[in-house]
């Protein structure tokens, strides 16, 4: 049967930084073709297609309804796959190969992560579930 795509409204202007991305404007409506846990969603708008940060999109039909998973305060063990230095105060600095606990997997691709007694945001893109093959 036909594939029904979910429509989302763009909530802030986004200027693309690479060829595979899509520039969108506040108020645009896009259809989401694929969602990745990294927070990049593949969208189409009229005849254009490309990746858009999920943080810039809200569901067209139910803007107030949260699609987020619940946090898991016990934490899920992950290994970092890249050195990362946060640019904002609430982001965590972690070297490659460290074990961290993922507490909240947010759709925008910035997960809440705990390392020892410190908690902060970390890019899902640089995390691999502990025990998963590379």
């Amino acid at each position: 049967g036909p594939i029904i795509l979910q429509s989302y409204r763009v909530i802030a202007d986004y200027e693309k930084n690479s060829k595979s991305e899509l520039s969108v404007k506040d108020g645009d409506v896009v259809d989401v073709v694929e969602k990745t846990e990294n927070g990049w969603w593949f969208c189409q708008m009229k005849n254009k297609r490309g990746w858009v940060p999920a943080a810039y999109l809200e569901p067209l039909d139910s803007p107030d309804e949260s699609e987020e998973q619940d946090p898991n305060y016990e934490g899920e063990l992950h290994i970092t796959t890249k050195d990362f230095t946060g640019e904002m105060e609430d982001e965590l600095d972690v070297k490659e190969g460290e074990t961290v606990e993922v507490i909240h997997k947010l759709l925008d691709g910035w997960w809440v992560v705990r390392r020892g007694s410190v908690t902060g945001y970390f890019p899902a893109m640089y995390l691999q579930k502990s025990g998963d093959a590379v």
């Binding site: 909530i11 802030a12 986004y14 930084n17 690479s18 595979s20 991305e21 073709v33 694929e34 990745t36 990294n38 927070g39 990049w40 593949f42 990746w51 940060p53 999920a54 943080a55 810039y56 904002m88 925008d108 691709g109 910035w110 945001y121 890019p123 899902a124 893109m125 640089y126």
Partner: peptide
């Protein structure tokens, strides 16, 4: 076919959006 997503983390939500989410 769908191209691979960008290899960098997506930007954090812009400040005006973050305010809306709170």
């Amino acid at each position: 076919t769908i191209k691979r997503p960008p290899q960098n983390p997506p930007p954090r939500p812009p400040p005006e959006v973050r305010r809306k989410q709170v």
